[in-house]
Amino acid sequence: MTADRLQTYGPTAALLALAAVFAVLSPQFRTLGNLQNLLDAGAVLAVVTIGATYVLLLGCIDLSAAGVMGACALAVSLLVANSRTALDLGPLGVLLVVALGAAFGCLSGALSVGLKVPSFMTTLGVSAIGLGVATVLFAGVQPAVSDPWLLQWASGRWLGFTRVTYLAAAVVVLAWLVQRHTRLGRYATAIGGGEDILRLSGIQVGRYKVGAFTVAGACYGLAAAMVTAQLGSGIVQAGAGLSFAAITAAVVGGTQLAGGRGGIAHSMVGVLILTVLANGLVLIGVSPYVQRAVQGVIVVVAVGATLWPLRHRLEVVK
C-alpha cells in the first residue's frame, strides 16, 4: 500500500520539490514570465506524451513519434499556405495531417497486432518509414509556412499564453475524459491489466490496441502541426528526441511500462517535471547536453523504481 501511495504522490512531490529548489537557486525562475515560457515550452511534449501514454497503458511502447512527427511536419507545411506548393488548405490541412498521423499510428498497431511483432520493433520500423517520407517530402528545399492562421498558433498570446498552450490544455482534458469514460480508454487500461482475461471474455483485443495506437498517431500529427507553427517551417527533425522524452515523461509521472497503471494525469505531472527541469537547468546555466544526459538516466531510474518492488516476482526480463 505504501509503495502504491508513493507511486501516486511521489511524482507530484518531486515536481514541487524541484520547483522549490529552482525557485531558490534562480530569481528568474520565480517570475510570471517564466511560468508562461515554461508552459509554452511544455505544450508540444504534453501532446506527444498523451499519445505515448495511450500506448503505454496497453503495456506496449511507441518509439514512432520522431518519424511520424517528421512526416506530419513536412506534410502540414506543404498543405497550408507555404513557399513551395500552391496549396492553401488552412485548418483543413491541419486536420488532414492529424489524419495522416492517425494513419501512421494505425499502421504501427496493425503491424504489431496482425503480425504479432513486439511494438517496439514495429514502431521503430514505422518511425524509419516516417523519417523517409519526411525526407522525400523535404526534397532538399525547406518549406516556409506563410499561413497566418497557423503561424498565429505560436505568436499570438491571450492572457500571456500562446494558442499552442491552450490547444495542448484542451487536448489534455479531452484525452483524460476519453481515458476515463469511454470504452476505448477503459479497455486500453484493462488490456494493460490483463490482456489474456479480456480475450477470455471474448473481447476483440486487437481492435482496441490498434485504436490506442491510432489515437497516439493522431496526437503526434497535431504535435507536428504545433511544432511547425512554432518554427514557421517544416523540418524533418520536428520530432527528434520526442519519442524518448515522451516515454520518459510518462514513466517519471507514474505511468508504468508494464501497462494498466497511471494514465494521462500521471503523465502530465511527468511532463511538468521534465519541463521544469529543462527550464530550471537552463536558468542556472547548465548545458542543454547535460540535460539530455540527465534524461537518459532518469528514465532508467524511473523504470527501475517502479519495478523494484516486483523484482522477486519477475523471473524473466528481456
Binding site: 511502447i61 517496439f120 511500462l257 528514465v299 532508467v300 523504470v303 527501475g304 519495478l307 523494484w308 516486483l310 523484482r311 519477475l314 526480463v317 528481456k318
Partner: peptide
C-alpha cells in the same frame, strides 16, 4: 534492476 534491455 531487472529493467527491460530496450529501456536501458
Amino acid at each position: 534492476f531487472r529493467i527491460p534491455s530496450f529501456v536501458v
